[in-house]
Design a protein around this nucleic acid. Structure first.
Lengths: 223, 223
DNA sequence: CCATGATAGTGTATTAAGTACAGGAATTTA
DNA sequence: TAAATTCCTGTACTTAATACACTATCATGG
């Protein structure tokens, strides 16, 4: 390990794949670039890591800048560092993925880019840089997380019904589940508890509202 | 996204957690630092990412420089980027982990550092920088991989016995398995095939030699 | 050449988990 | 009070996981 100063340094960014469920669809937040390169293209929100800023902090900051939301589920996804991924030069990006609750949807991104919008995550899109690849990777990770962890709660408000939860699974994994088996499975995980509350103002039998037993995070971070 | 040139740039390194099984122990390859900081401390092998070099290539290059082995299992682990992780300044490191075959053990690292050696991976060690944290992370990932993928073959030569394979699992997961159930499970995965060969020169009943059916990699990369 | 030592190799019964499947209960509205 | 709507639950069947013990094959040494 020779003198470290002599190496030309790459630029480092964070990009964030922000998922949400809206109108029974999995959506991803994209921004429209108003500068070159890829001016006019849609891209993942993100930006440069400040020199005095931890990576996670950078991701949190960018997320809050782009969407106004904080204190949500955010995890590092993968680092993409091919030499030719950015025409401006060597840019290594640490990708994160974030899940935001349906109730936070309205919070329109207040960002300095020209436009921002939610897109169907499963509809193939031409994105700037290698962002399509990053999105694909995030979708795989999301599906995997859903099958092997309890990350789905992140999409829902504090209190939710089992039918709402099942819907999340069905949307993301793109298949249906038998209601009885789904409930049996979820209950057997012993991560939920009844709140005693029920849904109000529905013109049918009201549903029980559940909530997560434990602080979210511990079960999820392991892999 | 303002003018990119104005940002001070961090340094970017790759560090590699190289595991191997030796004498029925899980070992990790460490190098002894002969420059400041942490002069005299043991650390993970690694080095700076060249400006015209993909991340994966950098990891492969460092691995080959340190151990002489190539064409082995190598995967990105996690990116560690806390501001204070390196006293020399802002250094973001992309950690990889690699599994090398027992038969390649002898290949002593021919590196430009003062010393290199294999250490018991499960024995807590004080390492330079945040390398203990990286090692812990790699151990978790390795254990997880073993349970949910077929990565264990990476530690073994092309042809191997089921007992050898079981031993790998027992060493890494630190528990024993019932021989019959283990074999039943492995066979049911349908990833192995008999070679027709058997072990030679053993003073007991010879064992059948198996090999992986498919090119390694596809099953493993998904998560 | 036969007895010993050492590891290889195999099967069955039990338990737990996953899957398939249908009808009654609670509420609002007309 | 009947209709519409969604909530809620249990049982039989299949598949996977676990617990457990003996015979087979080879090299070696007397």
């Amino acid at each position: 390990m020779a003198n470290i100063i002599k190496y030309p340094r790459p630029m480092v960014t964070v990009d964030i794949v922000i998922f949400s469920i809206q109108n029974d669809n999995l959506k991803v937040l994209l921004i429209k670039r108003n500068i070159q390169p890829y001016k006019g293209s849609w891209a993942l929100p993100g930006g440069f890591v400040h020199i005095e800023e931890d990576l996670d902090s950078a991701a949190k900051r960018e997320l809050e800048e782009e969407t106004g939301v904080k204190d949500i589920y955010l995890e590092q996804l993968y680092t993409f560092g091919d030499t030719k991924r950015d025409p401006r030069g060597r840019v290594i990006t640490v990708a994160y993925f974030a899940l935001i609750k349906s109730e936070d949807q309205k919070l329109d991104p207040k960002t300095d880019v020209s436009d921002a919008d939610w897109f169907l995550a499963y509809k193939p899109l031409k994105l700037a840089f290698d962002h399509s690849k990053i999105l694909d990777y995030a979708l795989k990770r999301l599906q995997w997380k859903l099958e092997y962890t309890t990350v789905a709660f992140q999409f829902l408000p504090k209190k939710f019904t089992l039918t709402q939860l099942q819907k999340i699974y069905e949307i993301i994994l793109n298949k249906t589940f038998d209601k009885r088996n789904f409930r049996k499975k979820i209950i057997s995980l012993e991560v939920l508890e009844e709140t005693g509350d029920i849904t109000k103002g529905v013109s049918h039998r009201p549903a029980k509202l559940f909530q997560c037993k434990t602080k979210i995070g511990e079960i999820l971070e392991l892999i």
